[in-house]
Design a protein around this nucleic acid. Structure first.
Lengths: 197, 197
DNA sequence: GATAAAATATACCATTCGGTATATTTTGTA
DNA sequence: TACAAAATATACCGAATGGTATATTTTATC
């Protein structure tokens, strides 16, 4: 890894929590300079501008969370256990997620409207990915006979993701983890009462 | 109503969609000047600053939506019909809500973190109000014997609001109304399958 | 219709914004 | 260790930011 590549990765790492807490419009290049302890020269030498930093940071934030959750799920074998691992991830790591500014998908989805349009494609892709990851687990459960055969995996996965993001929203604004836990409990219930055969 | 009061109301009206689409950080005083066709003098003569405009605008946006939905619900008599009127409001008015920048609560909740802290109390209060409005309908249904007696009205209301906001989020980013409708269908299902006795 | 007060417009402030040109330092290679 | 190339620091740009002091206009009362 060249010096530039290392610096680029370093900038992304340091800027990640800043963008996820302050948002794109709320984050300035000075904020990034301060967070990285580097100068504008270093940043503009490795990125075309603020937009590119924001996109790379978003990919990093989303990708990192997705990876951690995927690992937690893949540690289990059954579909039910994997979905339980999904909710348990948040039960265990809610504080860490909160400290880093909350769910990157939620934050970006709200800001990436007409205003910050250059991020839309990326956020849309990750939203699709987010649902797909859950759908894949549910579909495996259907195929293995663990879940009901007449289940619509896409619809169930969508419901799970919506419930989670809704819970994240209320958790964020009320600063009350029991609200997030409430959403997680409902997701668990969906699994046991609607998916299990 | 004095001239100043009328101007103040006019500024709030005109600035409302701007703040709800571009966010607090993304909206500048020049944007407000442009939207109102007034000058800075008129705005700073009626508001202490950008912060106060943002707060008043948020109250207006949230209050207006809440009122429209309350009216739709109060047109019905039974608790079930009222909750159905709730989801139907979005089925009918999704385009209008979208055009005005989406759900004010969702938008504000995501931005009102440490960064835009002066809005937190207001957004928290409206989040509580949002849940309470639904809870009141559910509780009335319990009291009248329409809904199951062992129902936890607060928990059910919370679930409903989370599902809705999660649906609004995916609707916003994917620009696909079927995603919102999916969330609304799930809420209807919660009513018929979990609340009705 | 004159006049004081209220409301709005104008012109300006210092600061910060994202971005760039260039100078300096660091790096890898011979 | 000499040296070219790559990477970073410095100093600056014009424009936009939120905000203010003051001039002008509009309003309401007599």
């Amino acid at each position: 890894m060249s010096k530039a590549e290392r610096t680029k990765a370093y900038i992304i790492e340091r800027a990640a929590p800043v963008f996820n807490t302050k948002g794109y419009s709320g984050t300035s290049m000075s904020d990034i300079v301060q967070a990285t302890q580097l100068t504008k020269g270093a940043i503009y030498g490795n990125f075309t501008g603020k937009d590119e930093v924001a996109i790379e940071v978003y990919k990093y934030n989303f990708g990192a969370l997705r990876k951690r959750i995927a690992n937690a799920m893949l540690a289990e074998t059954t579909a039910q256990a994997r979905l339980k691992a999904y909710t348990n991830y948040y039960r265990t790591n809610w504080q860490q997620v909160q400290e880093r500014g909350g769910c990157p998908l939620l934050n970006a989805a709200v800001e990436a409207d007409d205003n910050v349009a250059f991020m839309r494609k990326n956020v849309q892709a990750s939203a699709r990915q987010w649902i797909k990851d859950i759908r894949t687990v549910i579909q495996a459960g259907i195929d293995s006979g663990e879940f009901r055969a007449d289940l619509d995996a896409q619809q169930m996965a969508t419901s799970v993701c919506m419930m989670l993001e809704g819970g994240m929203m209320f958790f964020k604004i009320m600063d009350d983890r029991t609200l997030l836990f409430h959403a997680l409990d409902r997701i668990d219930r969906m699994v046991t009462q609607e998916m299990m055969r």
